[in-house]
């Protein structure tokens, strides 16, 4: 297995369907939908009853799966944890942005 492999960027330019998210996140459809309805998982489009997500959400959904399994949380608990983690991540990004702008000499 030495050849170059396909690399998918998990960013906002790529979309994934609910079905794909179920396949790759480890969460069930009902769990994902509950996280969508509580606002913990942002939806990109909801046309004709079918949801699509930014590929960035793959990372969030996988984190949700780890939190569920490792802390034995229910979906409500996972949703709260995801929102808090998102706030922490936003603050960390803001700190990193300010640090980058701050002269080092």
């Amino acid at each position: 297995m030495n050849h170059e492999t396909e690399v998918l960027w998990l960013d906002e330019h790529r979309a994934v369907s609910l079905h794909e998210l179920v396949e790759i996140s480890g969460l069930g459809e009902a769990e994902l939908l509950e996280l969508v309805h509580t606002g913990a998982l942002p939806v990109r489009d909801s046309v004709g009853g079918g949801y699509s997500f930014s590929a960035r959400v793959v990372t969030v959904a996988r984190t949700a799966c780890r939190l569920r399994d490792d802390f034995e949380l229910d979906t409500h608990g996972v949703g709260v944890a995801l929102k808090l983690l998102e706030r922490v991540r936003d603050l960390e990004q803001e700190i990193a942005r300010l640090r980058a702008q701050t002269p080092g000499i």
Binding site: T5, E6, V7, L8, L10, I24
Partner: peptide, 23 residues
């Protein structure tokens, strides 16, 4: 043991996540 080769196109930023399906 496995060796995986992955071409990272120009423009990756800090915190970028990439998925290599089936690897």
């Amino acid at each position: 043991p496995h060796t995986v080769k992955a071409r990272i196109a120009a423009g990756a930023v800090d915190g970028q996540r990439l998925r290599l399906p089936g690897k």
